[in-house]
Design a protein around this nucleic acid. Structure first.
Length: 475
RNA sequence: GGCGGGGUAGCCAAGUGGUAAGGCAGGGCUCUGCAAAAGCCUUAUGCGUCGGUUCGAUUCCGACCCUCGCCUCCA
């Protein structure tokens, strides 16, 4: 079965067919973070979605080239760097490092390439020069270079492919002070912003004078450089559909580097926004959380990733502390089931359980229906537990299940709870409790159990003897 | 004003023209010295409201209500 994805360009679910004639490799670009602060949980929804898609493409056997840019020059960054008194690279480094650390905490694989805007100024300038040469851009009297939407449309190109645009009804520029700009048309967007006093030392020289790149151009320049003028997948948050991605199409196709008949991007995918406790995240509502805020509250990266992966990427999703707490229980049930299977499987090996894999991939093939995929996984957990309870799981059956699970886990990236070695003093207490139990001194046995619980260890008595589990907030 | 999403149990969330996945929480039972874990059973005559089409609609159509997003920077 083939993977189907919802393409914003056509507003329909389409079969994924990579451009590669061999059907093997896939180029994927995801708009990355602007590193002016710690990324929040909503940002990470998109990045976890990108990670999931990349992993699932790999599961399907594609060789993925995953590119995610780091936007390292932009108004907020310049303002932040100025306020901090740090140089631009120093200011950026702290947030970029935090971003990668947070990504790892959430189980995201590192993109294969992570280009920075400031390291691609020559490519950006080259692209702008090409747009100027083709008559699609102009330098305004303020020194900035703008993309002309009128000229682009006059050439027969469509501006407004990802969204329906009605130029008569749109309130272009309503919420921005139009006097600040010197554009021919309000909807035109900046390719190159002329240096202003607030930019201080942050500027580059260009054929149009000192300045810095506009926001949209970096993604066009870097994606085309690393993935070619046409590539398969471009992702981002839904708020980027317009204007950012629309402008990327205009610039990239306006430059005319594509083979005739080919698009800049074949599939555009967008992740919906997150609500937190039923509301749009905002600092004034007190529901604005960075990943670090949640970690500080005792939740682990895998619990947060699990919650982010419970809803379909295209539906706006309500992120709640209830679901975060529920994630711990749900993952615990999964972990316990897997631990028992490991105990039984021992060194046995077997081919993957085909049914589990088939159900999982059937769900994921449908535009990454992760909720349905979890449904199949938890049905499997229940069925497995049922067999386990009846002692009907052979080592080879357990090995087959685990083998299937390992393939699925590579997609989910949720990780297995690492087996925790109990320290000697804990083991000693456990032995004392067993001794007391044998002597029918249940009062003492129970008090030892309480003591262990207070130390973060939970005892489960099984027919094979007691098992120790890490309780509480352990990651 | 234009455009585009949503409204499914206490919470989160799939899905379908044929009688509602899954997770969490709750209740009962089994197991256990007691627990824990696990298992079994249980929790929406109902899928925003009102009409329509249909043998049959939560699923299609229409109207309405509510809600979120984009049209500025934004995942």
């Amino acid at each position: 079965m083939g993977l189907k994805l919802f393409n914003t360009l056509t507003r329909s679910v389409e079969e994924f067919v990579p451009r590669d004639p061999d059907g093997k490799s896939a180029g994927m670009y995801c708009c990355g973070p602007t590193v002016h602060n710690f990324a929040h949980i909503g940002n990470f929804r998109t990045f976890v979605f990108a990670d999931l898609l990349r992993r699932y493409l790999e599961f399907k056997g594609y060789q993925v080239n995953h590119v995610m840019n780091i936007t390292d020059v932009e108004d907020k960054i310049i303002a932040g760097a100025r306020a901090s008194g740090l140089s631009l690279p120093e200011y950026i480094r702290q947030y970029e490092e935090a971003f990668w650390e947070d990504s790892r905490t959430l189980g995201c694989l590192a993109p294969h390439q992570a280009p920075h805007a400031t390291e691609h100024i020559p490519q950006i300038i080259g692209l702008i020069e090409r747009l100027l040469a083709r008559g699609l851009a102009y330098q305004a009297s303020d020194g900035s270079v703008y993309f002309s939407i009128d000229k682009y449309r006059a050439r027969g190109s469509c501006y407004g492919q990802l969204v329906n645009l009605n130029f008569d009804e749109m309130r272009v520029g309503e919420r921005v002070n139009a006097d600040e700009y010197d554009k021919e048309s309000l909807a035109d967007f900046a390719l190159w912003k002329a240096r202003v006093p607030e930019d201080a030392a942050i500027y580059w020289s260009s054929p149009w004078g000192e300045g810095r790149p506009g926001w949209h151009i970096e993604c066009s320049a870097m994606s085309m450089q690393l993935l070619g003028p046409s590539f398969d997948l471009h992702l981002g948050g839904e708020d980027l559909i317009f204007p950012h991605h629309e402008d990327e199409i205009a610039q990239s196709e306006g430059a005319g580097l594509q083979i005739p008949g080919e698009r800049f991007v074949k599939y555009w995918l967008h992740a919906a926004h997150l609500l937190v406790e039923g509301n749009k995240m905002s600092k004034s509502l007190g529901n604005f959380f960075t990943l670090r805020d949640l970690l500080a509250k005792g939740f682990s990266g895998r619990e947060i990733r699990y919650v982010l992966l419970t809803a379909h990427y295209r539906s706006s999703f309500n992120f709640t502390f209830d679901s975060l707490a529920g994630a711990r229980t749900a993952l615990g049930r999964l972990d316990d089931c897997l631990a028992k299977l490991h105990d039984i499987a021992g060194n046995a090996s077997a081919a993957s359980d085909a049914v589990l894999l088939a159900e999982f991939s059937a769900a994921m093939d449908e535009d990454l229906n992760i909720s349905a995929a979890w449904g199949s996984i938890f049905n499997w957990v229940r069925d497995t537990n049922r067999l386990l309870a009846r002692n009907q799981v052979s080592p080879s059956l357990a090995a087959a299940a685990l083998s299937a699970w390992q393939s699925i886990e590579k997609v989910l990236g949720i990780g297995e709870k690492p087996p925790t070695e109990a320290p000697p003093e804990i083991v000693a207490l456990l032995e004392q409790r067993q001794f007391a139990r044998k002597a029918k001194d249940f009062k003492r046995a129970d008090s030892i159990r309480e003591e262990l619980k207070a130390m973060g260890w939970v005892i489960e008595d099984t027919p094979q003897g007691p098992r120790l589990k890490r309780g509480g907030n352990a990651a």
